[in-house]
Amino acid sequence: MTIKEQLLQEIESTSDTILTETLDFLRFLKTKETRTQPIPEVADSAVHAPGNSTGHSLLEHLQTIGKWEGDDLQECQEMVYATRGKAKFNDYNPFE
């Protein structure tokens, strides 16, 4: 009996709740598999598709940026603090 046949046999005797989780997991695995395979036209270039960044690619990119220049660092930080949203929790929030 093949793996596919075994899976189909198990599916027949499984509840919808477990099948829903199983389907989500299977889709996750398929997505993970496609992310680990290099894309031929991108593999040899420095350009990466959105959502496919890795820690290594981000570190490589940081090396190309250079150093901070200018005198507006404080102003940029203040803008970030002023415009960021507050976290919302549906449950008990120990930080409130």
Rank of each mutant, 00 (worst) to 15 (best):
39 I>P: 00
66 G>S: 07
42 V>Y: 08
12 E>Q: 12
73 L>K: 08
70 G>K: 06
20 T>M: 11
7 L>R: 08
26 L>Y: 14
46 A>H: 03
93 N>F: 09
7 L>V: 15
77 Q>T: 07
49 A>R: 07
79 M>F: 11
59 L>R: 07
41 E>M: 05
75 E>M: 14
73 L>P: 00
85 G>F: 13
14 T>M: 15
68 W>R: 05
14 T>Y: 08
9 Q>P: 00
63 Q>P: 00
9 Q>L: 12
25 F>Y: 12
2 T>E: 14
79 M>T: 08
49 A>S: 05
36 T>Y: 04
43 A>T: 06
26 L>G: 07
66 G>L: 03
88 K>P: 00
10 E>N: 02
20 T>I: 13
62 L>S: 04
84 R>V: 06
93 N>S: 09
80 V>P: 02
14 T>W: 08
62 L>T: 06
18 I>N: 13
33 E>V: 04
56 H>A: 09
15 S>Q: 03
87 A>V: 11
81 Y>V: 12
76 C>F: 12
57 S>A: 03
11 I>K: 06
50 P>M: 02
76 C>N: 10
82 A>K: 14
67 K>M: 11
91 D>G: 06
51 G>R: 00
31 T>H: 03
16 D>P: 04
90 N>T: 13
86 K>I: 07
91 D>R: 12
50 P>N: 06
88 K>Y: 07
59 L>W: 00
87 A>F: 09
